[in-house]
Structure formats: structure tokens, C-alpha cells
């Protein structure tokens, strides 16, 4: 695997205007067993700052802020905190806390929302 090529492709998918790029990143990137790839995918999806992309990173168990790898999860949280426009992310976090999903996911969303409120 050529790391530079993969990094560039994921970054290009992140910048791509086509909404289908989110599906590709979700299918190939977030399901990859390599931590580094999932980390890059999380960054690319969060930087898109769209409802669909942020939902993948916040609501899904085992992806984004709920990733089993602490490194990947922390990277996703950092990326959320670095967003200029946090409105969309905060709304999704609020919905996740109030929804009937797993408690673990709700707790993570609550913690991240608190962090984002403090950093704003």
C-alpha cells in the first residue's frame, strides 16, 4: 500500500463535491481494519461538514467518535472541535442524545457536545 496515494485519494474524496463520495468513504474508509486509514477517513468526512457525513461519524457505533481505537476517536473529536461552523454537528449530537440509540453512543455524544460547547 502506498500511503501517499491513499492519503491523497481520501483527501480528494473529502474535497469532492459529489455526494457519492460520502458513500465511498463510508464503505471503504471507515470499514478499513487499518487505524491510520480510518483516521484519515474520519477527518475527510468531518471536514465535509454535511449532515450525512457528520451522522456517520457521530451516530454509528464503531465509527468516528465511537471508534474502538482511542486514537481514531480522539482524532474525530479534535476534528469536530476544529470546525468553524459547529451548528450542524451540535444539532446531530443533540438528536443522538435524545434518540433511542445505545447508551454508550449517547454518552459519547453528550461528552463531545459538552466539549464543543466549552470550546465555542
Amino acid at each position: 500500500m502506498n500511503n501517499r496515494k491513499v492519503k491523497n485519494i481520501i483527501e480528494a474524496l473529502g474535497r469532492h463535491k459529489d455526494a457519492d463520495s460520502i458513500r465511498v468513504l463510508n464503505e471503504l474508509g471507515t470499514n478499513c481494519p487499518i487505524d491510520e486509514i480510518r483516521e484519515m477517513t474520519s477527518k475527510a468526512l468531518i471536514r465535509k461538514n454535511t449532515k450525512e457525513a457528520l451522522e456517520i461519524m457521530i451516530v454509528n457505533k464503531g465509527k468516528g467518535i465511537n471508534d474502538l481505537s482511542a486514537r481514531v476517536a480522539m482524532c474525530a473529536i479534535n476534528e469536530l472541535l476544529a470546525l468553524k461552523d459547529k451548528q450542524e454537528a451540535l444539532e446531530i449530537l443533540e438528536n443522538t442524545i435524545n434518540s433511542e440509540t445505545e447508551k454508550e453512543v449517547q454518552d459519547t455524544a453528550r461528552s463531545v457536545k459538552a466539549l464543543m460547547s466549552f470550546s465555542a
Partner: peptide, 8 residues
């Protein structure tokens, strides 16, 4: 996107 997907 198709070509990017296949490349990745």
C-alpha cells in the same frame, strides 16, 4: 467518483 473508488 467511480475511478476514485476503484483506485482506493
Amino acid at each position: 467518483i467511480g475511478s476514485l473508488e476503484s483506485m482506493l
